[in-house]
């Protein structure tokens, strides 16, 4: 089934797909393979329900931890990330707010901390920072992502948030222009002179730059590849086809599709023959649906894939050297 196509080998590789298809297995295996080839590799889990550490049979934190030589791994912790941000804001409040207001404002901020979207935004923030800071420090950054919907959302945030920020910036700009006009005509009535730079505008611009930067990175096909993992079953195929369309909309380059858990030809029996018959149709569907992308196949094993050795054995079957399977 191999067509001689090489597996996408980019600076930043995402593994995504429906829940339970083997994203973590593939991400860990690919990262290991890169590390074994002496590429300094960072493996990042963006799934709030982390399983990367379990797969590598170690416990990971929010900071990079060396798992095997050349391979570092971390699991983004949205809660910790949100707390850190809130602490930051509170710290600045203490410096700039009148004491009589402080308590109530802090209460308001604690409400915002638990509001919907807070942890998503915090996760995205850390994600964007990793995209930024790893450049030049690692040869490969491999993302083990959350199931499809969550990840598509994460990758679409730079565009959605960027547009919102632009709106806020232009409004704020107008406020400042009018403020200047008012100061010019009002003289002393306008009160104390404000500093020349508006901290609000500065903060908004900084955010926008970060969104733009993340977006530029994510849409750069020379640096990024998103690899979908599917299994030859109906629902994963449908869900992945939808996700491919969405990534196209957000211009995130798809680098290939890995079909995981294909029944090996040597297993036999009446029951398996029937399954195989059904599977053939799904494999055909996959070839048709994802014809635009390189497709790679991995067989179903007799035992679970768990731990570094089993992972290594599994991914050597991927055509990273241009070998076919």
């Amino acid at each position: 089934m191999g067509d001689g196509t090489r597996f996408p080998d980019r600076e930043i590789v995402f593994f995504g797909g429906k829940g339970g298809v083997g994203k973590t297995t593939l991400a860990c295996g690919y990262a290991l393979l890169a590390a074994d080839r002496r590429r300094k590799t960072l493996l990042v889990s963006t799934d709030p329900a982390h399983s990367t550490g379990d797969m590598l049979e170690t416990s990971l934190t929010d900071e990079p931890l060396e798992v095997v030589p050349n391979l570092w791994a971390l699991e983004i912790d949205p809660e910790r990330e949100a707390d850190r941000y809130i602490q930051d804001v509170k710290q600045r409040l203490v410096e700039s707010t009148a004491p009589r207001l402080l308590q109530e404002v802090e209460r308001q901020i604690d409400i915002a901390r638990v509001s919907p979207g807070a942890e998503e935004a915090a996760l995205f923030d850390r994600f964007a920072r990793i995209l930024d800071e790893t450049r030049g420090r690692y040869d490969r950054v491999v993302f083990d992502t959350a199931p499809t919907g969550h990840t598509v959302r994460l990758l679409s945030l730079p565009e959605l948030m960027g547009a919102w920020m632009s709106g806020l910036i232009s409004r704020r700009h107008k406020v400042n222009v009018l403020s200047r006009m008012w100061r010019n005509v009002a003289g002393a009535a306008a009160g104390d002179e404000r500093p020349q730079t508006d901290p609000v505008l500065e903060a908004l611009r900084k955010r926008k730059v970060r969104f733009e930067h993340a977006r530029r990175t994510l849409t750069d096909a020379t640096r990024v590849a998103f690899v979908f993992v599917v299994i030859p079953e109906r629902l994963p195929i449908i869900e992945t086809a939808k996700a491919v369309k969405l990534l196209k909309k957000y211009q995130v380059p798809v680098g290939g599709v890995v079909v995981n858990r294909v029944l090996p030809s040597e297993v036999q029996g009446d029951f398996l023959e029937r399954r195989r018959h059904r599977e053939q149709q799904y494999l055909h569907d996959i070839e048709r649906t994802f014809a635009a992308f390189p497709i790679f196949y991995l067989p179903l094993g007799a035992t679970d894939v768990l731990g570094v050795d089993a992972l290594r054995k599994l991914v050597t079957q991927l055509p990273l050297d241009g070998r076919t399977t």
Partner: peptide, 11 residues
Amino acid sequence: PVAFYTLELYP
């Protein structure tokens, strides 16, 4: 949608 990010403007 940007409530979390405008939080830092409070101060």
